[in-house]
Amino acid sequence: MSSAPLTPEQLSSFSPMDFLTPAYRQQLHAGLKYLQHPAGTQLLTKGERVLAQYYLLEGKVALDTGPTRQTIEGGSPQAHMPLNPGQSNPHSIKALTDVRLFAVEHQLLERLLGWSQDAAYQVSSLGGGMVEEHDEDDWLARLLNTPLFGRLPPSHLHALLARFEYLPVRAGEAVVTYGEPGEHFYVIKQGRARISLPQAYREQPTQVLERGDFFGEEALVSGAVRSASVTMLEDGELARLHRDLFVELVRPSLIPRISGTELEQLSHQGSRKYLLLDVRLAVEYRLGHLPDSFNLPVANLRTHADSLDRGTCYVVTPDGGIRSELAVHLLNQLGFDAYLLSDSTPQAA
């Protein structure tokens, strides 16, 4: 059985991926999960709610449609449609032979379809310019292609653009300063800036921000003071959003949540590897924590990121409160797949 991944061009032959713009199809392609199961495996159960939409690549499956049984074979026209079109399975599906499938997260697919069908880049900014999808250097296009803002609902984009303030800045100007309260979220619309870390982190490489990069959100997520300073390297322009508007429009998208029920589905299906992460201090963790959770304090996330598996879904326990929310944001910012467990009661280990 082949293990070769699909190309973005091959992905476009599956429905509804053919409705995606090339940029969003590429983004979806990067998030595909491939699965293999032996003959006889119960792949889906009728009425079960699942987080992903599944497509058959190779092999043969049977759909229990009541009085009759329908079969689908990989490569057939029917196989280019989802096996479970919707979050509640309409049929039970069993593998008749060894099968290979790929899975797409429902929410991700819905967001990308929303962007494509809503002509998300055909939106007027306050300056009257149109945001063009093919303009790779456009600040807003780059912003929305980040993992964090790819989660933003299309309706929020319009509100976001309408609420942005545009601020001219000069080379050498300090936009935010380490230790001060966070009042705004910033996106670089034009120019470049440098992040300066406090003395304790000076061994880390200096980070330069360019058009479409954003900063200032960590203080707004955590409620803490600024953790670094940002200084303009050249003249430019910033898009700025006040704290209250950031909390209303953006913050919910930066901290995706997963319920205990959805987590159980992941575990039973075995389709995704996940790890429960407790980001409190070690002394707090020892006093009581969820079974099977792993302790990594939020302050150590950046320095230990290289030791984390990028193929794992990280589910952060809610015990740390605002620290747990910040950890989810930081992990997603670092390119990991992370969620906040939304309904869990801590138990003693």
Rank of each mutant, 00 (worst) to 15 (best):
Y166V: 11
P168C: 03
P168T: 07
V169P: 01
V169F: 03
V169Q: 05
V169D: 04
V169N: 04
A171R: 12
E173G: 03
E173I: 01
A174L: 05
V175F: 01
V176N: 01
V176T: 08
G179Y: 00
E180M: 08
P181M: 03
P181V: 06
G182P: 05
E183M: 04
F185P: 06
Y186T: 00
Y186I: 03
I188V: 12
K189E: 11
Q190P: 00
R192Y: 01
A193W: 01
A193K: 01
R194C: 06
R194A: 13
I195F: 07
S196L: 10
A200W: 05
A200S: 13
R202M: 14
R202G: 15
R202F: 12
E203M: 13
Q207T: 14
V208R: 07
L209Q: 03
L209M: 06
L209R: 02
E210S: 12
E210Y: 03
R211V: 13
G212I: 01
D213M: 08
F214K: 00
F215I: 04
E217I: 00
A219L: 07
L220G: 03
S222P: 11
S222I: 09
G223K: 02
V225E: 11
V225R: 10
S227V: 06
A228K: 04
A228I: 08
A228W: 04
S229Y: 03
S229W: 02
S229P: 02
V230D: 02
M232F: 07
L233M: 14
D235S: 12
D235Q: 11
G236D: 05
G236Q: 03
E237S: 10
A239D: 09
L241P: 04
H242S: 13
H242R: 07
H242Y: 00
R243A: 12
R243W: 00
D244Q: 15
L245P: 00
F246D: 05
V247E: 14
V247P: 03
L249A: 07
V250C: 09
R251G: 07
P252Q: 05
P252Y: 02
P252G: 08
S253N: 04
S253K: 02
L254H: 01
L254M: 12
I255T: 09
P256H: 08
P256T: 08
R257S: 12
S259G: 15
T261C: 10
E262N: 13
E262P: 05
L263Q: 03
L263C: 09
E264G: 15
Q265S: 13
Q265N: 14
L266H: 11
S267D: 15
S267K: 14
H268E: 15
Q269C: 10
Q269D: 14
Q269N: 14
G270Q: 06
G270S: 10
S271V: 04
R272I: 01
K273D: 14
K273R: 14
L276S: 10
L276W: 08
L276K: 03
L276A: 09
R280T: 08
R280C: 06
L281E: 15
A282D: 11
V283E: 15
E284Q: 14
E284P: 09
E284H: 11
E284L: 07
G288N: 06
G288W: 02
H289R: 07
L290Y: 11
P291Q: 09
